[in-house]
Amino acid sequence: MITEIKNAIRPLAELPDSEISELTGIATIKKYPFKSHFIKAGQIPTEFGIVINGLFRYIYISEEGKEFTKVFMPEKSFISSYTAMISGTTSFFFIEAIEDSEVLVIPYHNWQKLNSHNSKWNLLLEKLLEKGYAAKEKREREFLLLDAESRYRIFLEEFPTLENRVKQHMIASYLGITPIALSRIKKK
């Protein structure tokens, strides 16, 4: 398990082996089959994770059943309904495995204990939150300022392998368009 943890964390923050081994005491590796959920809307999250392999998406589902894909989370991504977890409230979205996946899962209360004994873990949390905030700000800017065709080009640049891993209706949902509109864009 130590190798998987190192591989998951090292791209995010350069921490020494001795500190990474501390994490093995509180973390577990869990498997999430295709279509299973790391978190469901309405649940109060108590853990977060780092995707070791596989692929997830965050989705909102309207009362009418329409899906809105917020983001795709491939390998080495931090997954959590973070705001709900730290505030002890229910999540508004689902985190769904869209491939068979493995996640390094860390219970939040254990993380807090670990962090209270060694503040260097704040470096990892800071890097994870910075990465998430930057991605959120970029995505909002794209939705506000760019048309669907431009958003699709950016999707292909950012996630060059995802088009073959993700169903077209999910990509359309991520882009904020219908699958028919996505087909038209791809034909151009």
Rank of each mutant, 00 (worst) to 15 (best):
5 I>A: 14
6 K>C: 05
10 R>Y: 11
11 P>C: 06
12 L>Y: 01
14 E>C: 02
15 L>E: 05
18 S>A: 13
19 E>K: 14
22 E>T: 04
23 L>V: 12
26 I>A: 10
27 A>H: 06
32 Y>D: 02
36 S>T: 15
37 H>Q: 03
37 H>T: 07
38 F>S: 13
41 A>C: 11
41 A>M: 07
42 G>K: 07
44 I>Y: 01
44 I>Q: 09
45 P>W: 08
45 P>K: 03
46 T>C: 01
47 E>C: 13
47 E>H: 15
48 F>C: 11
49 G>S: 05
50 I>D: 01
51 V>K: 02
52 I>H: 07
52 I>D: 05
56 F>Y: 09
58 Y>W: 08
60 Y>S: 08
60 Y>P: 01
61 I>P: 00
63 E>T: 12
63 E>S: 13
65 G>A: 02
68 F>S: 14
69 T>K: 04
69 T>F: 08
74 P>S: 06
75 E>Q: 11
76 K>I: 07
76 K>H: 13
77 S>H: 13
80 S>R: 04
80 S>G: 09
82 Y>M: 03
82 Y>N: 02
82 Y>I: 04
83 T>M: 07
85 M>K: 06
87 S>Q: 14
87 S>T: 15
90 T>G: 05
96 E>V: 12
97 A>T: 11
98 I>M: 02
98 I>Y: 03
100 D>C: 06
100 D>V: 11
100 D>W: 05
101 S>K: 08
101 S>M: 08
103 V>W: 03
107 P>C: 14
108 Y>I: 02
108 Y>N: 05
109 H>F: 03
109 H>E: 14
115 N>D: 04
116 S>L: 03
117 H>D: 14
117 H>Q: 15
119 S>Y: 10
119 S>K: 08
119 S>T: 14
122 N>T: 14
122 N>M: 07
124 L>R: 02
124 L>G: 05
125 L>D: 00
125 L>Q: 15
126 E>M: 05
127 K>Q: 13
127 K>D: 02
129 L>F: 03
129 L>Q: 03
130 E>A: 02
130 E>W: 06
131 K>N: 13
136 K>C: 04
137 E>V: 15
138 K>N: 09
138 K>R: 11
140 E>Y: 12
141 R>Q: 04
142 E>T: 00
144 L>A: 13
144 L>P: 00
145 L>N: 06
147 D>K: 10
149 E>F: 03
151 R>N: 06
151 R>Q: 10
152 Y>M: 08
154 I>W: 01
154 I>F: 09
158 E>C: 00
158 E>Y: 00
159 F>R: 04
160 P>L: 04
161 T>R: 07
164 N>S: 11
166 V>C: 05
167 K>R: 11
170 M>V: 00
170 M>P: 00
174 Y>H: 12
176 G>S: 11
176 G>A: 09
176 G>Y: 10
178 T>W: 08
179 P>K: 06
179 P>A: 06
183 S>H: 10
185 I>H: 04
185 I>Y: 03
185 I>W: 02
186 K>Q: 13
188 K>C: 02
